[in-house]
Every structure is written in C-alpha cells, then in structure tokens.
Design a protein around this nucleic acid. Structure first.
Lengths: 130, 130
DNA sequence: CTCAATGCAAAAGGTTTGCACGCTT
DNA sequence: AAGCGTGCAAACCTTTTGCATTGAG
C-alpha cells in the first residue's frame, strides 16, 4: 500500500477508461480494453490500481455469482445497489432505502453487529433480450 | 451429468456431514472435516457432489465477498436469504418477501427479463462478538 | 457385466506477490 | 537522489477436467 499516490501515466489510463466505459467490467476486461487502445498498462497494474480505487471508495466492486470481481465507476456517492445485465454488463444504479433498513433490522434482531450486506439484481436488459 | 444417481459411500459421507454441520462452509472446509473424521473422500468428489446437490436444490450456495463458494444444507424449501456470521459461519435463514418483490419490480421497470438476485447480510453474531 | 462415480494429477481460471528496473516527486 | 510504481514471471487458490480404475446396480 502506497502512502503517497503518484500520478503516473498508467493510472491516468485506467481512470480515463473508467470514465468512458459504462457498467461493470472485470479487471481482465478493462485490461483488454486498455491493450486494445494501445495504452500499455500491465494487468498487474490494473489490478493494483483498481484495488486502490476501491479502497479510496472511488469505484464500486461486486462479484458475479461466478466469483469474478467486477468494478465500476460510481456516479452516486451514497450507498446503493445495482441492476446488472448478465449479457452486456450495463447497469442501473438503484437505491433501496427500505432494503437497507430491513437488512439492519433483521441483523439487529438476531444480535448481529458490524452489519453489512450485498444486494445485486441480475437480468437480461431490453437491448440484449432482442 | 449423471442420468442415474448411485448411492456411493462417498455421497453418503458428504450428506451425513452436511446434516451435522451448521452454517455455510466452503467445499475445502467440508473436505477437511471429512478427512478429519477419516471419511476418505476426495476433494474432487466433494466438489462434484456439492454441485449435484445444488442442481437438485438440496443445498444452498452463495459466495463470500472474497469469491469463495459456500454451501449449506437448507431447511427451508422456499427461496430465502441468509444472515451469515463472518467469524463462525453460522447462519440465520430469513425470508424477505418484500425484498423479492421489490427486486422483480425494479428490474421490470427497467425492462430487464430473466431476473434473479443475490442478497446476503453479513455481520458478527452475538456469540463471536463477545 | 456395464457404466456411473471416484480420485489422482494436471489444467484452468482469476488474482496476488517477489523482485529488479524506471519514473515521479 | 529516494522510494513509490511498474511489469514480468512465478506463486497461489479455488474449481474443473482428463483418464484409468473402482464399484454400484
């Protein structure tokens, strides 16, 4: 973990890409996109940068039922969930205040502390269904 | 995929173990438990049997944020969610009809089809918090 | 006797780490 | 000049697969 965050070309490339693409993508996918646009960034660096961004809460990450980690630049700063297309990875950010409250309440009822939760909705978007 | 399911000693061991243990456990953990009790079942078989059981809807599986797959024998037959202790893996099964409906509704609003969702609550249970 | 099931070893992902070199500050 | 960041290769982990052997029916 770096104490200082330097502005390197590679990090710029990753950030620039994240600003352009929409929806969730795996680290591998993002790396491939970078390679495709001749950005010369190593896979290792992509992973490290993404992890850095997740820690800094600048991007969001979830996991597919398959286990791969997905990353996405988040436009909302508040906690929220995602409706993700299985096919193309496009996402809709949804807020579900009721769900949050319910989760915390259920956990509290059972004496659980340090509560967190994951909630993702998967489906096939209208585009991809055609 | 087998057309016929034969009753082998190994499958019996796995099932017996699942009946005894509580909460979610990874395939590796279950395998270690089997080894510990000298049940002589290969890791491969554990994976294959668990997958079989998941397909047959006899057990439930989720994934940790870390990506490992967890398995658990389910007492409820209906769709439900889990409150999982991060420390000891003990779980509480919770039904959240409202959540289900909300998920389907949100998805439909955005034109998504073949909708599924994942919802897990993580925390530290009262036991482990002490 | 047949064919599904097993188990080993190897493959196959995806992600992380060790280490020497290079670039930001 | 100092030390963080990079990138390659190798290590790691979990899960899957190939294949010869075992055993249920």
């Amino acid at each position: 973990m770096p104490n200082v965050t330097r502005n390197t070309r590679q990090r710029g490339e990753v950030l620039a890409l994240l600003r352009e693409v929409d929806g969730f993508h795996t680290a591998q996918q993002l790396h491939q996109m970078l390679v495709a646009r001749k950005a010369r960034v190593g896979l290792t660096t992509v992973y490290r940068t993404l992890q850095l961004l997740v820690d800094a809460q600048e991007i969001d990450s979830t996991r597919l039922p398959g286990g791969e980690q997905l990353f996405r630049r988040c436009s909302q700063s508040r906690h929220h969930h995602h409706l993700v297309c299985r096919r193309c990875g496009s996402t809709v950010e949804v807020a579900g205040p009721a769900v949050e409250r319910w989760a915390d309440q259920v956990a509290a009822q059972h004496g659980f502390t340090e509560v967190g939760h994951t909630f993702e909705i998967f489906g096939t978007c209208a585009q991809c269904a055609r």
